[in-house]
Amino acid sequence: MILLWILFLGGFVVLPGSALLAMRWAIRNGEFRDFKKASLLVFDEEEPVGLVTDSFPTGKIVLNTGPSPATHGVSQP
């Protein structure tokens, strides 16, 4: 029974606790240093910024005419 309570109360502590440990790891590994670089990680040479990568099968490729990535502004804290 005690073990079960430890499991349950541990659940309330372990999950946020694991998040805090992960945050410590992230700080130490510089994950919060360069937000601009991080925001560009979904892009690469094969599919760079500005490339639209999805459309209906019978549709044409639609260029994104919204704000350009440069003016779109990758926000900094």
Binding site: F35, K36, A38, S39, L40, V42, F43, E47, V49, G50, L51, V52, T53, D54, N64, G66, P67, P69, H72, G73, V74, S75, Q76, P77
Partner: peptide
């Protein structure tokens, strides 16, 4: 971001 070709507005 992938479909629109634009990075997320604020990574922060």
């Amino acid at each position: 971001p992938k479909v629109t070709g634009k990075p997320i507005h604020s990574y922060y």
